[in-house]
Design a binder for these strands. Structure first.
Lengths: 200, 200
DNA sequence: ACCTGAACACCGTTCAAGT
DNA sequence: ACCTGAACACCGTTCAAGT
C-alpha cells in the first residue's frame, strides 16, 4: 500500500474504463483495503487523478524529429504527436478533465518550435506557424474523437451524408463524404497544405 | 410539469454549471416536485441530456456564407462555426459526452461542402478540402478549450514558455509564445494559409 | 504510522402505493 | 394520467477509534 501502487492500480482502472469508472470504493476493493485507507496516502479522488496524469506525462515518449528538409521534420513531429494521442487517449482525457491541457501539449509545442526555428522562421511569424501546426493536430484529435474510446453504436457523419440530396453540392463530393475518411492520408494532405504556405 | 418545462429548466442548470452539475434531485427541487416525478415524463438522466442537446441543435442559428470570392465565403462559414462554438459551448460539451458529435458538426460540414462545391472542387479532392477546413476549426475549439468554460486558476502554456531557455529555439519565438495568442487573428492566418493551398 | 468502521451528505433509479 | 415515498445500490469524504 504505497502511493505508487495506488496510482498504478487506479491508472489501470482509468485506462480500462475511462475516468468515470474510477471510484474510490472500487479501487479500495481492488487494493484489498478499506476505501478510507486511500485517503491517508493520497488526498482524495481529484488528487489521485492528478497523480495519474503526472505519471502518464512522465512516461510519455519523447518527440523526435526525422527527415532532412524542414517540412519533413515539422511533419514528423506532428505525426508523432498524433501517434501519442492515439496510443494514450486517457492522458488527454485526463488533461481535459483536470484543466491541465497545457501540461500535456507543451512538449509538443517545444518540439515544433525547435524545428520551426531550425527552418529559419523568427518571432511572431514563427509563433503563428507553431500554433497553426498544433491547432491542426488538435483538430484531428477533436474531430476524430481520439481522446476518448468511441463506443460501438455511435453514429457517424458518413451515415448522415448518405441521405443528403442537395443540388448545390457536387454529387461526387457527397459520395466521398459518405465514405469513411482515410484520416491518416487526410492529415498528411492538410499538414502539407499548411506547411507549404508557412515555411519559407 | 411538461417534458418541455423539465428540459428547459435542466438546460438552464447545465448552462450554468456544466453537465456534472445536473442532478435529478436538484432538478426536482428546482421544479418543486419529487425526483421520481421526472422519470414519468422523461426516462432518466441520460435521455434528459439527449433532449437538451436536441433542443440546442434545433435552436442553433443557421450558418450563412458571406462574401464574393470562394475563399471569402468558405472563410465566413468557418468563422460562423467558430462563433457558434464560442457562444454555445454546452452544446459541444454535451455532444462530446453523449457521443453525438456528428449531429452537431454536420450542419457545418454541409455549409462548407456547399461553398467548396461552388468554388469548383469535385469528388475526393473536394472532400479532403471540406474535412481539412473542419479539422482546423475543431483544432481551435480543442486547443483553446472553448467547449468548456475555463476555470480561474488554470495554467496556460504561456507561463510554461517564459521559463524556457533553449538555444535551439529562437529567443523572439520564445517571447512570442510567452504572450497570449490573438487567436482570432491566428485563426484567420491559418485558415487563409490552408485555403490558399486548397482552392483553385 | 497506518488502517478500519461508522457516519454524513450526496447520487440515479425502481416500484408499489396513492389520487 | 400523474405524482409521492420508501427503498436499493451506489457515490466521495470526514473523523474518531483502533493497532
Amino acid at each position: 500500500m504505497s502511493p505508487e501502487r495506488i496510482v498504478e492500480v487506479a491508472r489501470r482502472l482509468v485506462e480500462a474504463g475511462g475516468i468515470e469508472s474510477l471510484s474510490m470504493r472500487k479501487l479500495a476493493a481492488e487494493l484489498g483495503v478499506a476505501p478510507t485507507a486511500i485517503y491517508w496516502h493520497i488526498g482524495g479522488r481529484d488528487q489521485l487523478l492528478h497523480a495519474i496524469l503526472d505519471q502518464l506525462v512522465t512516461d510519455a515518449s519523447a518527440l523526435r524529429a526525422r527527415g532532412d528538409s524542414p517540412t519533413q521534420r515539422v511533419a514528423s513531429i506532428a505525426r508523432a504527436i498524433r501517434r501519442q494521442i492515439r496510443n494514450t487517449p486517457v492522458m488527454f482525457e485526463l488533461a481535459q478533465h483536470l484543466d491541465r491541457y497545457p501540461d500535456v501539449s507543451f512538449p509538443g509545442q517545444l518540439a515544433v518550435a525547435r524545428e520551426i526555428s531550425a527552418a529559419g522562421l523568427r518571432g511572431v511569424e514563427a509563433a503563428e506557424a507553431v500554433r497553426s501546426v498544433l491547432f491542426l493536430v488538435g483538430g484531428f484529435q477533436m474531430v476524430e474523437g481520439n481522446f476518448r474510446s468511441r463506443p460501438a453504436g455511435a453514429r457517424t457523419t458518413q451515415e448522415l451524408w448518405r441521405k443528403v440530396d442537395d443540388p448545390s453540392i457536387d454529387p461526387q463530393l457527397r459520395d466521398s463524404l459518405s465514405e469513411p475518411a482515410d484520416t491518416d492520408a487526410l492529415f498528411d494532405y492538410a499538414l502539407e497544405a499548411l506547411l507549404g504556405s508557412i515555411l519559407p
